[in-house]
Design a protein around this nucleic acid. Structure first.
Length: 393
RNA sequence: GCGUCGGUGGCAGAGCGGUCAAAUGCUCGAGACUGUAAAUCUCGCGCCCAUAGGGCUACGCAGGUUCGAAUCCUGCCCGGCGCACCA
């Protein structure tokens, strides 16, 4: 095989790039990869929302590296686990996802991922397949594989105990279920975010009892200097469904110290290229980053446009080109228009924005909360919200 | 089951009969400065009408006491802790 050199480099990259840790150790995985035969590699995604975010993207990028090395890659859709949910956060009243909803979500995921990886080469498996018909005795057997001590080893649980916060029984079950996925898939490798390490290792433990070893690749998470996750809860989380302009803008609003890790985690650019970008200085490097990421998910053309738009909008204070156009009747109250378009949440908010001088019509600051629309034009709300008005005939 | 403490805005956490739309911190929004970064400063952050100001809804849920309740009482629901129970 003449391509050993090339695959050698590929393997090194796979073992290190964006990788936080490999269990039991990188060498073991390296040996496995070097050996003949396909490995079964998988990553799980819970279809809780309509959109994936960049964190999912980085997992997919890693899967692609496995795929490129000729491994068998499975994307596990946790449609059953998603219906259990995590009761930690009382806010998110997790409604059970119906199979139809899951299907809809997954369809969207497909579109979002299509640019990243050739989905026709990836097997899609739903874990409802085995969990839906699981019997209580099987559940108990599963639960019997772990002790409470093992569970409360987990940092999060320790914290909660310390803070007198409740831990629900199904939360203990969650890692077990995730572990059971590995068993059912007969997986050699699982890839996931570092926040999933505990769950993934539960799978490793469980699988060992069935006489099979799974390796775990945990990926670095994109965190800011305070160690906060750029997850769904943070408002600068980038969703793969975001419009190119938004995606670009959100990335530009990231903290500077995210630039280097983001290049590593969210793109597949070569190290030399990344270094050359970083040498440009923080602002320009971030622009390169934003453009690269947008290009990855939306295509080069969209990335070009998004960048041009950004430069125009924020560096030269121009109005972006492709604004949503709203038809309005003459003399409509601007507050009403913005409210119905969901640009603002309430009239009170409108008032507040007016008071702080945040609303401009055709560049003209508005200070009348009863402003009526007389003619078409652009409305700017704050720094990032724009809308174009046209008169209805 | 018994006892006990507790349930307040996006979060944390004050308030414990009127001056409470509710301190404070964080988050968040806007403005200034910038690179839509960070830091800093200023303002704001339930909803509706309004120029001042007014109204409505809110402090787990449902009732009650009172001129007046987030604050007191009763019941219910939920959680923490302790005790009991241990199939």
């Amino acid at each position: 095989m003449g391509k050993t050199n090339k695959t050698g480099a590929q393997i090194d990259r796979l073992l290190s790039r964006a990788v936080e840790n490999i269990y039991p150790n990188p060498e073991a995985l390296k040996d496995k990869l070097a050996a003949e035969g396909k490995l079964t590699v998988y990553a799980g995604i819970d279809p809780t929302g309509p959109s994936l975010h960049l964190g999912h993207g980085s997992i997919i990028l890693k899967l692609k590296e496995f795929l490129d090395l000729g491994q068998r890659v499975i994307l596990l859709i946790g449609d059953f686990t998603a219906t259990i949910g995590d009761p930690t956060d009382k806010l998110s009243v997790r409604h059970k996802l119906s199979p139809a909803e899951v299907k809809v979500n997954y369809k969207k995921y497909r579109q979002q991922l299509a640019k990243l990886i050739d989905l026709s080469k990836v097997e899609i498996v739903y874990n409802r397949r085995w969990f839906a018909k699981m019997k209580l005795e099987q559940v108990l057997a599963l639960a019997g594989e772990f002790t409470v001590g093992q569970m409360i080893e987990r940092d999060m649980f320790k914290q909660r105990i310390k803070n007198n916060k409740p831990i629900y029984l199904n939360e203990f079950l969650y890692p077990l279920m995730q572990g059971f996925d590995s068993v059912m898939l007969d997986a050699d490798v699982e890839v996931g975010g570092n926040d999933q390490t505990f769950n993934m290792l539960a799978g490793r433990t469980l699988q060992k009892k069935y006489g099979r070893e799974k390796m775990v690749v945990s990926l670095k998470l994109l965190t800011d200097s305070l160690g906060k996750k750029m997850g769904k809860t943070e408002n600068n989380a980038v969703f793969l469904s975001d419009q190119p302009n938004d995606m670009y803008g959100k990335i530009m609003s990231w903290s500077d110290d995210l630039i280097r890790p983001a290049f590593e985690i969210c793109t597949s650019l070569d190290k030399q290229i990344i270094d050359s970008y970083l040498a440009l200085g923080p602002r320009d490097a971030k622009m390169k980053l934003a453009k690269s990421i947008v290009a990855l998910y939306k295509g080069d053309k969209a990335a070009e446009t998004a960048e041009a738009d950004f430069v125009g909008k924020f560096q030269q204070n121009k109005i972006p080109t492709d604004l949503p156009v709203i038809k309005v009747a003459a003399d409509s109250f601007l507050s009403d228009v913005l409210l119905t378009e969901n640009i603002i949440k309430s009239k009170t908010e409108f008032r507040r924005l007016i008071d702080s001088g945040a609303i401009r019509v055709n560049g003209q600051k508005i200070n009348d909360s009863h402003y009526q629309v007389k003619s078409g034009g652009t409305v700017k709300v704050g720094k990032t919200r724009f809308i174009k008005l046209e008169m209805k005939n």
